[in-house]
Computed example of a mutant assay.
Amino acid sequence: MSGADLSRLSLNTATVKHADLRTAVDAAASAGYGAVGLWRDRVQEVGAERAARIVAEAGLRVSSLCRGGFLTAADDAGVEAALDDNRRAIDEAATVGTRELVFVVGGLSGSSPGGPPGAATDRDLVATRSRVADRLAELAPFAEARGVRIALEPLHPVFAADRAVISTLAQALDLAAPFAPGAVGVVVDTYHVWWDPELRAGVARAGREGRLACYQVCDWILPLASDALLSRGHVGDGYVDFAAVTTWVADAGYRGDVEVEIFNETVWDAPVAATVATVAERWERHVAPHLAPSPGAGMRLLDAPGERP
């Protein structure tokens, strides 16, 4: 390693999908990372309390827990199942010691992730988004009481049918607006939002409202995999302007950890140590230089296109 400051770099366990929790944590700690982002599958394999100990003993922070959400069920049984699972996720987040629980809100009711619509698929996007708002109203007080913030993650529109009926940062912020910033925030994930012409304004708004909960980075690579979910690449391998987006996030006041979250079969098949080293090198080259707020950032926040002071 080059000796660069990696204290704000977080390894999301999805990036080393085939590694167990201890292997992922030890690799991040040995490389000098400051944090890990945990997926619930790895937490549940060992239990939340033991997961917390593994991270703490390695001297790392938990930047976030992934994921809660999938709130779009239209039937009573589906609604109750979603609420129960999300309450468990909130308790897991509190136990592992993170404030931020990433929420992917879910696709159309009756959809199947990555597959064709079911016979009972509800294609009413307006009603579906309304159900998400209703479920948030039920879960936000529960999360806030446990010191956990629901962090809404907009997903690229290609996933609107089956994974997330919110696609832009503005939509996520509008959903969050009825709740205190400490209860519901938003995630900026470069893979999902890099394309949005209103992204700069949305990031500035999120900063002013105190809702920037998590910054996740990876690249948009082409050609897309047969499953677009697996088309994330290492930072610098694709089309995302990390200098611009990172500068906007820094100027908006974000001072938290930056997670690298990559879904890619080739990355998953690589040795963990090699992946951790590549992530750190790309962080140093493409992200870290832009994490300090720019001179006059506060003034530019007020002048961001489409936003009011």
Rank of each mutant, 00 (worst) to 15 (best):
S111Q: 05
R129T: 00
R129L: 00
V148G: 14
G118F: 00
T98I: 03
V132E: 00
G107Q: 01
G115D: 14
L125W: 15
T95R: 09
A145I: 10
V105E: 02
R135A: 09
E144W: 11
A94E: 11
L108D: 04
D124V: 01
A140R: 11
A127M: 02
A120G: 15
A127Y: 01
A127P: 02
I150E: 12
V132A: 06
A127V: 12
A145C: 09
G114P: 06
P116M: 10
E138Y: 11
D122A: 08
E92T: 08
F142P: 05
V132M: 02
S130N: 15
T128C: 09
T121K: 03
G114M: 03
T95A: 09
G115V: 04
S130A: 15
G147Y: 02
P154A: 11
T98K: 05
E153N: 14
A137H: 08
A151Y: 14
A137F: 12
F142R: 03
P117N: 07
G106W: 06
R123G: 11
A151I: 08
P141N: 00
I150H: 05
P116L: 10
P116H: 13
G147V: 07
D134F: 12
R123A: 12
T121R: 11
A143P: 10
T95D: 01
V126P: 02
D122Q: 07
G107I: 00
A133S: 11
E153G: 04
E92R: 07
D134L: 13
I150D: 09
